[in-house]
Design a protein around this nucleic acid. Structure first.
Lengths: 144, 144
DNA sequence: TCCCTATTGCAAATGACTTGCATAAGCATA
DNA sequence: TATGCTTATGCAAGTCATTTGCAATAGGGA
């Protein structure tokens, strides 16, 4: 999925400088339909940028609302292009492979959840992940 | 919630040695209704054990099916006693405060999700977290 | 009670991510 | 197009949660 307008314009419209690193990262992000980790982003962006730059740039993209951070596991973060329909993820317990799950059956549950809580003032957001085994890991396990 | 039988028996039945550290951790876990982080567990267990011991013990408890690891965010893991009804969590974006959400509206969705995937062989599990702001953080933000 | 083996503590390593600082681009303006 | 202020970047070093190696210690079955 290429962005509606080129990445530089998107960046500038979001109030960010259209630097080479950010453009490359945003392109990489748009080109993929699954969340990318910092190291994958650097690889996909294809110009030897520092990992630190990836983190800082993604931080900027995130604040500007162009990228969305996915907190699937506790070992490393991933990001995906933000201008996408709300959806969830399927995660492999073996290799960490990620796949999108199109539908969201949880919309509208947030209010109910908040209503039952005494300690919370608001609920803005939710995340739903399904865990399982991808075919590769399943056959690897069978072979072992 | 105290365990049905004392922690030592639970451990031994699970095939683990009932060491002082594991008993203390399991007690701490059962005494709380919310997931505890490694450092909190050490504090709650109340005997100056090494943090490394907490990690190794929780790993053992987890493998034995006595504790459940919660992967809410990417900054630190939490565990809760495993013998509890399936439920989800409400997480404060400000301070990380965690609260249980009793109901699960996602049960039964797993099969449907798996059916739509081409890359996955099985789905065993899911996690659903709601994010928001707890009252403390909300009033702190108002005051600032 | 003894002995073998699992577990613990300590120290050091790892891996993801962040921070400080000097240099190198952006880009608005002249 | 050249200028100059400001924001980004690279590099090196630091932080934080978690893991690993190893020697010392403590369960618990015989």
């Amino acid at each position: 999925m290429a962005p509606a307008r080129d990445s530089s314009s998107l960046l500038r419209e979001a109030g960010l400088r259209a630097t080479a690193a950010r453009v490359a990262l945003l392109n990489a992000l748009c080109a993929t339909h699954k969340p990318l980790k910092a190291a994958e982003l650097r690889r996909s962006a294809g110009r030897g940028m520092d990992l630190v730059t990836v983190y800082r740039a993604m931080d900027a993209l995130e604040k500007a609302g162009l990228a969305k951070r996915i907190g699937v596991d506790r070992t490393s973060a991933s990001w995906e292009f933000a201008h996408r329909a709300h959806h969830h993820h399927l995660v492999c317990r073996g290799c960490g492979e990620l796949e999108d799950v199109g539908e969201c059956a949880v919309e509208g549950l947030e209010k109910r959840v908040l209503g039952k809580s005494k300690r919370f003032a608001s609920v803005s957001d939710h995340s739903l992940e399904f865990f399982g085994t991808c075919r590769d890991c399943a056959s690897a396990a069978r072979a072992a």
